[in-house]
Computed example of a mutant assay.
Amino acid sequence: MDYIRLLIADDDKEIRELIRTYLQRENYEVDTAADGEEALRLCDQYNYNFILLDLMMPKLDGIEVCRRLRQKTNVPIMMLTAKDQEMDKVIGLSIGADDYMTKPFSVHELVARIKAQLRRFMVLGSSENIVQRERSDDLLRYKGLLIDIRKYSVKKNGEEVALTAKEFELLKFFASHPEQVFTKTQIFRQVWSSEYLEDDNTVMVHIRRLRLKIESDPSHPSWIQTVWGIGYKFVGEKDES
C-alpha cells in the first residue's frame, strides 16, 4: 500500500483536523470536507481508499452521501454518529456503511479500525499471496453460488452480485465454514477484526443486507440461516464440478 488517500467529512473543523493529524502520522494522504456536497465533489475528483462520514452534516447528511456513493463504489465507508442516533446507525448500515463509531470516540480506536478496514479491502482484495496463504483455492463453489476470493466477486446462478467489501468478507467467512454456528460476537471479531462489539446491530444489519442480495427469499433464507438463541450458520451444497 504505497499511496493511500482517505476522505474525512465532518462539519466540526476541530474533529476534522484532529483525525487528519493522526492519520497523516500513518503516512496517509487525507482530504477533508465540511459538508455532504463537498464530500461528493471530492469523491468525483479523487479515488479514495476509505471514507469517513459524519451522520449530521449540512447540505447533505451522511446517510444520503453514503447512499449515493454506494451506487458507484464499494470503498469502505465508516459513519460517525451520536449516541442517541440509534435508528440512524441502522439506516446507515442498511444502505452500505461498513462500520460506525459513536461520539465521543477514541482517536486511537478510530485509527485502528480504519487501518483494519484498509487491510481487508486493499490487501486481501488485491494481494494474491495473502489470499492464497489464507486458502489455497481461490474459489468457493456451492450449487448456485460462486465466490471468487482473488477477484472479490460473487455470482449467483451465473449472475454477478454487487457486494460491498464488508458484505463480501462476511459471505466469505460464512462460506469458508459451512454448517458451523457462530455467535454475533464471533462473527464481529472475525469479519471486523476487533474484539469490541458495540451492539448487535452491526452484525445483524449486514447479514440482513447480504441476504437481500444473495437469497431468493430473504425472509426465508436458505444460505445464511439463523440458529435461534445462538447465532447464524451457512448452509450450502458444495459444487464439485
Rank of each mutant, 00 (worst) to 15 (best):
R135H: 10
A112K: 15
R68T: 02
E128V: 14
I63R: 04
F188N: 13
S153V: 11
F234W: 12
A116V: 02
V111L: 07
E17H: 15
I91L: 08
C43I: 15
A175Q: 13
T73V: 03
Q225K: 15
I224T: 07
K83D: 10
T226K: 15
E26T: 08
H206S: 10
Y142K: 09
H177Y: 13
M87W: 10
F174G: 04
E159F: 15
F50I: 00
A175C: 07
A162R: 15
L163M: 14
A112I: 05
D2I: 08
P218F: 06
Y142G: 11
Y28T: 03
K151Y: 04
I114F: 00
L93D: 06
V65W: 10
N74E: 10
S127I: 05
D200L: 13
H177P: 02
S216R: 12
P58W: 09
D88S: 14
D239P: 10
K184Q: 12
E198F: 13
L210F: 00
L7I: 03
A116D: 11
D137V: 12
Q117K: 03
E169S: 13
V30H: 05
I15D: 09
R208A: 08
D84K: 14
V161F: 09
K184C: 01
P76Q: 08
T73A: 12
G125M: 09
E240C: 01
Y22Q: 11
V123L: 05
E198I: 11
L163T: 08
G36C: 01
